Computed example of a mutant assay.
Amino acid sequence: MSTQPSHRAGTQLAIVDAHHHLWDLASGHYPWLQDAYHGPAFFLGEYEKLRRDYLADDYQRDTYPYRVVASVHIEAERSRMQQVDETRWLHEVHERSGTPSVVVPHVSFVQPDRDEVLAAHMAWPRVRGIRSKPVTARSPQERVTGQAGTMQDPRWLDGLAALEGYNLSWDLRVPFWHLAQAAEVAAAFPRIRMAVNHTGLPLDRSEAGLAEWRRGLEALAANPNVYVKLSEFGLAGGRWDADSNRRVIRDAVAIFGPERAMFASNLPVSSLSASFPAIVEAVLEALADYDDAAIARIFAHNAIAFYRIGD
């Protein structure tokens, strides 16, 4: 008789995907996908592969045969003139397909009509949080601290504070060299739940880079309102480094504990480096020493609680 832990049967594990995207290029405008692209190469791989519709059927196909019992849609950078249109469209998609379960839309914390857009989002029952990316430096060597739109901008902080009145969480997406600054924000707003996107984007897998990433995560984890998403382990050019990914996953869970870590796929962007089964199995392998209760929290229960799925 096998003594293998039951959570090793990944296709039988109940999964709540805490971070994915959908888009329909005919019904909405996604500038980063549809407009002429003149910037540097997309940092996670072959950008052209993303310039197509990605609908609920595509998501369900990519996650089969795993038991994804619920999912969280994170804003997909639809035109900032169509922020509420994206929320409406996602509710229509849910009515047809059951996917996604809840929605995290966008509003810029510094846009003039911020309060009106927030109120319009709240008219839709599946809205649970907001993702609003602060202005960040392009590299660890660049400095933008205190500039307009950064995490030190009083106007930006005022926008973040507005989430508390709506019981909305904040999805925090910054590169690893801004994690320590984000921890200062988390400490200043202890009643706002925050989810670190993409494991804090540990893009530099050198010893020095990982040390800085760990310091940032440790500073964030000191705040009990902050959770971490175990997602997007791909590297530049679509590279998948199994050894360092294993280390990143283990370190992130060791820092936050299994009570504040959430599995997330980042589909379809993550498909530039790995399939959904590969991502699930990589996380399970990295966390092989954790018991079934911890695995159930990481893969489902924490996201259910954080995003109030079922409310």
Rank of each mutant, 00 (worst) to 15 (best):
W23Q: 04
L33W: 09
A120S: 13
A222S: 14
T99V: 15
V68W: 01
V103K: 03
I15G: 01
V84W: 03
G28E: 08
T136L: 11
V107G: 06
A252P: 10
R297S: 08
E77R: 13
V269E: 11
A186R: 01
L220A: 04
I295V: 06
A183M: 04
K49F: 09
T199R: 05
A18R: 04
N266K: 08
P112V: 11
R239I: 10
Y290K: 14
H19I: 11
E142C: 12
S244P: 05
A286K: 02
A264F: 05
W89Q: 04
T150N: 10
L220E: 07
R308H: 06
V117T: 13
Q181Y: 14
H178E: 12
A41Y: 03
R246C: 13
F109R: 03
M81F: 15
R239V: 15
V72P: 01
V102T: 10
I304T: 12
R308E: 01
L230W: 01
D113S: 11
A76Y: 00
V228W: 07
A293W: 05
I192H: 06
L217K: 11
G310W: 01
V93A: 00
Q82H: 10
A187Q: 15
I309E: 10
R52Y: 12
I298Q: 04
S108H: 06
A254V: 08
L217P: 00
P100C: 12
V248F: 02
G98W: 10
H178I: 06
R308F: 00
P125W: 01
W213I: 09
